[in-house]
Measured scan of single mutants.
Amino acid sequence: MAASAHGSVWGPLRLGIPGLCCRRPPLGLYARMRRLPGPEVSGRSVAAASGPGAWGTDHYCLELLRKRDYEGYLCSLLLPAESRSSVFALRAFNVELAQVKDSVSEKTIGLMRMQFWKKTVEDIYCDNPPHQPVAIELWKAVKRHNLTKRWLMKIVDEREKNLDDKAYRNIKELENYAENTQSSLLYLTLEILGIKDLHADHAASHIGKAQGIVTCLRATPYHGSRRKVFLPMDICMLHGVSQEDFLRRNQDKNVRDVIYDIASQAHLHLKHARSFHKTVPVKAFPAFLQTVSLEDFLKKIQRVDFDIFHPSLQQKNTLLPLYLYIQSWRKTY
């Protein structure tokens, strides 16, 4: 089996927390979720979201995140109150960019949308954001926290390059993509939290790379249903696996070995980020709550012996909000 052949990389499970039942964490995340308004986002309300009498641009960002990046939404709820709305805006910006690729039928249209967001970032730093909910909220975040323009532009530029429907040539190319998107998002989150620390940035770099790799793995069944495969070609070739094997949902050992190798790289990034947690300011830990969902996925895929098409991998963990709150309460990542 794939797991038994390579099992030495995987460390002990961390979500089991001995003695936790003896201490009762304060009510927090679930209460916040219940208090949030929840009407559906419609095209009509989106168009009017920044106008008078609408929910408001902040509510639009929150709803977009809740629907399109639920794990990011849950993590954002546990940030300090003064930072929450800015991170909602930042993550909503990322969602807007991420959904361009799947929402257009022609690359030219995707490039036009990316050009809109490039100009939007430029206009935000000229205090002239367009009348668009996410743009307005992002402008507020930039003004409030003096966010670095370079990180925002890196996210747009990398998403634009990724409009080509090509597999990553190697794991390094996937890591570079993750660094310029997910890690950049974390650098900006640290700025919102008021953290300027080399060790925190180092952790953000590795956690962002782990996030990018896990996202690529999780999306494999969806991409396969659209006749697309984006997994690193070098690892596929190493194990003699073709793109057609993934399109046919082949579950042979060599296919699972490909998934094992890729998942192991995410695991190593996560492990390395945690190896120097004592040197990272505690104030930075809330920015890294996504490690909970990353670890949850890596454990699940290990349990199914790296069968990327196993139905259990597509099921939401209903206990994730609780695990996130516990992680926040324990002040760790």
Results as ranks from 00 to 15, higher is better:
146 N>D: 13
182 Q>Y: 15
92 A>Y: 03
234 D>G: 03
311 P>M: 08
219 A>L: 05
48 A>C: 14
93 F>P: 01
319 L>Y: 08
248 R>Q: 08
302 Q>F: 05
193 L>S: 03
211 Q>H: 12
279 T>S: 13
178 A>P: 01
307 D>W: 04
122 E>G: 09
166 K>M: 10
270 L>G: 00
329 W>G: 04
184 S>F: 08
233 M>I: 08
281 P>I: 00
49 A>Q: 14
139 W>E: 03
82 E>M: 13
194 G>L: 01
135 A>D: 06
135 A>M: 04
96 E>D: 09
188 L>M: 09
153 M>P: 00
290 Q>N: 08
211 Q>S: 15
48 A>K: 12
260 Y>E: 06
259 I>T: 09
181 T>N: 02
309 F>N: 08
230 F>Q: 10
156 V>N: 00
107 K>I: 13
178 A>D: 00
330 R>Q: 08
121 V>D: 00
333 Y>R: 02
277 H>R: 07
128 N>A: 15
257 D>I: 04
75 C>V: 13
226 R>F: 12
177 Y>W: 06
193 L>T: 03
331 K>A: 11
54 A>F: 15
158 E>A: 12
270 L>E: 01
221 P>V: 12
158 E>W: 12
285 F>P: 01
57 T>I: 10
55 W>A: 10
65 L>A: 09
294 L>N: 04
307 D>C: 04
306 F>W: 10
219 A>I: 03
70 Y>E: 05
271 K>H: 11
266 A>K: 00
104 V>L: 14
221 P>Y: 09
265 Q>D: 06
162 N>Q: 09
207 I>T: 03
130 P>D: 05
327 Q>T: 10
188 L>N: 05
262 I>N: 03
327 Q>A: 11
82 E>P: 15
228 K>L: 14
83 S>M: 13
65 L>N: 09
131 H>M: 14
133 P>Q: 09
333 Y>H: 03
310 H>T: 01
252 D>Q: 13
187 Y>W: 10
220 T>H: 06
139 W>I: 02
296 D>L: 09
45 S>Y: 12
96 E>S: 13
196 K>H: 10
132 Q>P: 04
120 T>L: 06
86 S>G: 13
67 K>H: 13
188 L>C: 10
160 E>Q: 10
138 L>S: 00
201 D>L: 05
327 Q>G: 06
173 E>K: 02
268 L>N: 08
161 K>Y: 09
285 F>A: 15
309 F>K: 03
232 P>W: 02
194 G>A: 07
196 K>Q: 10
69 D>L: 00
230 F>I: 13
78 L>N: 09
189 T>D: 02
325 Y>M: 15
125 Y>M: 07
263 A>Q: 04
124 I>T: 03
64 L>P: 01
296 D>A: 09
62 L>E: 06
133 P>W: 05
325 Y>S: 07
257 D>T: 10
94 N>T: 04
188 L>P: 02
288 F>N: 01
332 T>I: 11
298 L>Y: 03
305 D>K: 07
62 L>P: 05
233 M>F: 08
105 S>N: 14
162 N>R: 08
229 V>W: 04
125 Y>E: 04
248 R>N: 05
142 V>N: 05
183 S>Y: 00
193 L>V: 08
327 Q>S: 09
148 T>E: 07
300 K>F: 00
298 L>H: 03
274 R>P: 01
204 A>E: 00
225 S>T: 14
46 V>E: 05
164 D>C: 10
126 C>S: 15
277 H>M: 07
215 T>G: 13
331 K>Q: 13
52 P>C: 11
250 N>A: 14
107 K>G: 13
159 R>G: 04
61 C>E: 03
181 T>Q: 03
54 A>Y: 15
237 M>G: 11
210 A>Y: 00
283 K>T: 14
259 I>L: 03
189 T>P: 01
137 E>F: 02
239 H>I: 00
60 Y>P: 05
135 A>I: 04
264 S>A: 15
239 H>M: 02
99 Q>N: 14
100 V>T: 14
231 L>I: 14
141 A>L: 00
64 L>E: 08
254 N>M: 05
93 F>A: 00
284 A>L: 01
88 F>S: 08
185 L>N: 04
129 P>C: 11
106 E>C: 05
218 R>F: 02
180 N>Y: 10
276 F>Y: 06
280 V>W: 02
180 N>D: 08
243 Q>Y: 06
264 S>M: 08
236 C>R: 03
186 L>M: 10
244 E>S: 04
121 V>T: 03
313 L>Y: 00
224 G>A: 15
49 A>R: 15
298 L>E: 02
81 A>R: 15
71 E>L: 07
236 C>H: 02
161 K>F: 08
55 W>Q: 14
282 V>H: 09
200 A>N: 00
73 Y>N: 00
70 Y>R: 11
58 D>Y: 07
320 L>E: 04
168 Y>R: 03
49 A>S: 15
71 E>A: 08
220 T>L: 12
157 D>R: 10
60 Y>W: 08
230 F>T: 11
80 P>E: 07
79 L>I: 11
283 K>R: 11
282 V>A: 12
228 K>Y: 11
131 H>Y: 14
79 L>P: 04
106 E>R: 08
106 E>M: 08
56 G>H: 13
72 G>V: 07
122 E>Q: 14
146 N>M: 11
154 K>Q: 09
176 N>W: 12
237 M>R: 06
212 G>T: 03
213 I>V: 10
62 L>G: 08
115 Q>D: 12
285 F>C: 13
96 E>K: 10
234 D>C: 01
66 R>M: 10
166 K>T: 12
173 E>D: 09
179 E>Y: 04
170 N>K: 06
73 Y>P: 01
154 K>Y: 05
194 G>Y: 01
261 D>G: 08
257 D>P: 05
206 H>F: 05
135 A>R: 02
70 Y>K: 08
135 A>T: 05
96 E>L: 11
233 M>K: 04
212 G>Q: 03
168 Y>C: 12
77 L>W: 04
289 L>N: 06
63 E>S: 15
157 D>M: 12
224 G>I: 15
82 E>H: 15
47 A>F: 13
255 V>P: 04
253 K>G: 15
195 I>Q: 08
197 D>R: 03
166 K>N: 11
156 V>M: 11
325 Y>T: 12
56 G>Y: 10
331 K>H: 09
196 K>L: 08
192 I>Q: 02
138 L>C: 03
89 A>R: 03
183 S>Q: 00
224 G>E: 07
321 P>M: 06
127 D>T: 06
111 L>A: 12
292 V>T: 10
56 G>Q: 15
177 Y>F: 07
101 K>W: 12
331 K>G: 10
205 S>T: 07
309 F>W: 12
182 Q>S: 14
287 A>W: 00
103 S>Y: 14
186 L>A: 05
332 T>W: 11
250 N>L: 14
148 T>W: 02
152 L>A: 02
69 D>W: 08
138 L>F: 01
